[in-house]
């Protein structure tokens, strides 16, 4: 009940910021359309719709990090959290209350991406629905990163770190914009030590029906999600006690 009440408030806060929401939901779609147009003129295997859509969908999730981090950072600055800390709400109520409302937004974003992809040529199979389903654990990773950054950064810093740095880093290291094999070396090793490329390859494996390729990537994503969530919880609890 306490958590639901808080989650309801957080949903309203995000939905009532239409500019951010539209940008977060619309930007990945614009990119999808743009890169598909380039692909139509200059064919690049990486930008084929079945390869591109999973990458763009995962890239779109970096906006979920921005949403959750901004919300927490603003709450910390406005002292609303301070007020709520004096109520009987527990740490779990806060963490779930911040996390759960963003999952449906992440799913809605991936539904929008896949719907546009279908409209421009992606074949409709049951795998599309499975790919949308697998967005849920991936979205937890990005939301946890938001919880983590929102607990230590202020509103302006969140804009810089999550809005600029993380969105770019997660994109470069995901194998969506360019083939990591082409860069190779340390860059490729770093990319494969981080979860972003695994999230994209997980989605690609699900969409293409290569189910044997799912698990190795899934463990990476799940491991990072659990670790990010654990660190986020610790940092949130630390700032709660400050």
């Amino acid at each position: 009940m306490k958590m639901l009440s808080f989650a309801k408030r957080n949903t309203k806060e995000i939905i009532r910021d239409p500019l951010t929401l539209l940008f977060g939901l619309g930007f990945p779609i614009v990119l999808l359309l743009l890169l598909s147009a380039i692909q139509a003129n200059v064919p690049v295997p990486l930008f084929e719709i079945a390869q591109l859509t999973p990458g763009i969908t995962v890239f779109g999730l970096s906006f979920m990090t921005l949403f959750s981090a901004t919300l927490i950072a603003k709450d910390r600055e406005s002292a609303l959290l301070q007020r709520l800390y004096t109520t009987p709400m527990t740490a779990l109520d806060f963490i779930l209350g911040y996390t759960l409302p963003i999952v449906p937004i992440a799913v809605a974003q991936s539904v929008a991406c896949y719907a546009v992809a279908v409209a421009i040529g992606l074949e409709v199979t049951v795998n599309v629905f499975l790919a949308i389903l697998f967005i849920v654990p991936i979205s937890v990773l990005f939301i946890a990163l938001g919880l983590l950054f929102g607990s230590i950064l202020n509103d302006k810093q969140v804009g810089g770190i999550c809005g600029a740095l993380l969105t770019n880093l997660s994109a470069w290291l995901s194998g969506t914009w360019f083939d990591l094999e082409l860069v190779g070396g340390v860059f490729k090793e770093i990319a494969y030590a981080l979860p972003f490329v695994h999230a994209v390859e997980l989605e690609r494996a699900v969409l293409s029906g290569s189910f044997s390729d799912i698990l190795p990537h899934f463990w990476w994503v799940l491991g990072y999600s659990v670790a990010a969530l654990a660190v986020a919880v610790l940092l949130f609890l630390r700032q709660m006690k400050k």
Partner: peptide, 10 residues
């Protein structure tokens, strides 16, 4: 609290 501590969009 010292700051108004309200949710502005609600």
């Amino acid at each position: 609290p010292q700051e108004t501590a309200v949710a502005p969009k609600l």
